[in-house]
Amino acid sequence: MAHATATTAPGQNLWNGGVSPMGASYGKLMMWFFLLSDAFTFSGLLVTYGFVRSAHQSYQGAADVFKFSHDYWPIPEKVFEAVPFLHGISLPLVFVGIMTFILIMSSVTMVLAVEAGHRMDRKAVEKWMLWTILGGITFLSCQAWEWSHFIVGTETPTLIKDFVKGEWITREVFGANLHVNQYGPQDFADFFFFITGFHGFHVFSGVLLNFLIYYNTVTGVYQRRGHYEMVEKVGLYWHFVDLVWVFVFTFFYLV
């Protein structure tokens, strides 16, 4: 598909604003508006998180004597403090910081691929797309580790009181899933799975799209087409995934 501006004869005024009033091709424009709608979806999730969190009791005591309990919302840095191969050492938010760094870097390599595409530099596009794909896969692997750690839980269980069949019982709870949660209120675990899961799924689709772009670049599809606009469009999606992570990082892990 050629640029929209190239398909009409000079002087022809298809719309009132000219052929392309926004100065962008149809595909690029649609990617922008898709991302806008996706931004609303993610905002919906994050705002609901804020809503439910603010409706819960927050932890009042000192941070160093913090204990997991169903009575208040947990401090995120007390939940996410594990790093692979460093078992038993408390390193709050370090691993999620590494993940943030990986995603930002893969966003940089993506924009370098876009820049190379503008110059019709096939070799450079291939190189930077590979780095981007690698970054995406690394991020997903990190997330898989983080999820499994979150699900399995800490070494010491959290004692949770439950009202079952008319009497109070105390249960030992390890880790979290959609039924139990050792870290705090059930909603906390549910939001963790839904928000990071929905984002992770976006990263996964992004890696697939990036691979498609890489494949088409290698086989010379864009070379023959005469432009690398597809790299730019998928690049927009990939940056958006990075953008969402910036918000998830702040509102789920930091605040």
């Binding site: 926004m22 100065g23 424009l29 508006f33 609303f40 905002s43 809503f51 603010s54």
Partner: peptide
């Protein structure tokens, strides 16, 4: 990008700010 495109993306984002304020207040 062209200003029209810029504002077409930025203006709808303001709805999110309202959504945030409303839901946090409610919470």
């Amino acid at each position: 990008e062209v200003k029209v495109l810029f504002w077409s993306i930025m203006v709808p984002i303001t709805f999110i700010a309202w959504m945030l304020v409303a839901f946090l207040y409610e919470g």
